[in-house]
Simulated assay, not measured.
Amino acid sequence: MKKIVMVSLFAMIMTAGCKEAPKAETQAAPAAQPAAAQPAPAAEPTPAPEAPKATITNVEWAQALEMQKNGAVLIDVRTPAEVAEGTAPGSINIPLQEAEQRIAEFPKDKDLLIFCRSGKRSMAVSNFLIQNGYERVFNVVGGFLAFPAK
């Protein structure tokens, strides 16, 4: 199930636009049943899926770097080739493609500052972590493209 969720998230992120959500389509209501029709047997109620107890918080780089000084873990979810071109000091590289297999490397007892190049992959990993019970997940806005130059 986790693989299906991760693959679905990855596929949605790779195909969806970054800024706009797709517009919902409306469907016509089904025609009313004739009065003589027998009522359908009552269906057993389906329990609603449990909503995640935590949410993702977006943070800017200044706040992320301050949080890192106070013990938060900075995680770069870009590929090793991208990381070789530069990354935030002290960050750990766990590429999006390896997040599911390496989930044990994401500490649950610390704030997790997730970043990628621009923000799509970090949001996918952040959602994956929330779905797997993590509660202290922060997405670094703008990704490494917004990293402050010194």
Rank of each mutant, 00 (worst) to 15 (best):
K3L: 14
K3Q: 15
V7G: 11
S8R: 11
S8E: 06
L9M: 10
F10D: 14
F10I: 15
A11M: 11
A11D: 11
M12C: 13
I13V: 11
M14S: 14
T15P: 02
T15R: 10
G17R: 06
C18W: 14
K19H: 15
K19C: 14
Q27E: 10
Q27Y: 11
Q27G: 08
A29M: 14
A31I: 09
Q33P: 14
A35D: 09
A35M: 09
A36M: 11
P39C: 03
A40W: 01
A43Q: 15
T46I: 13
P49Y: 08
A51K: 15
A51M: 12
I56E: 00
N58W: 04
E60I: 05
E60T: 05
A62E: 12
A64L: 01
A64R: 01
L65I: 10
E66D: 14
K69Q: 15
G71C: 06
A72L: 08
A72N: 05
D76F: 08
R78N: 04
P80R: 09
A81F: 08
A84E: 10
S91Q: 00
I92S: 05
N93Q: 05
L96M: 14
Q97G: 12
A99M: 05
K108Q: 12
K110N: 05
F115D: 06
C116N: 01
C116D: 04
S118W: 05
R121N: 00
M123T: 10
S126D: 02
N127L: 13
N127S: 14
F128Q: 06
Q131C: 12
Q131Y: 13
E135H: 04
R136M: 09
N139K: 03
V141M: 10
F147G: 03
F147V: 01
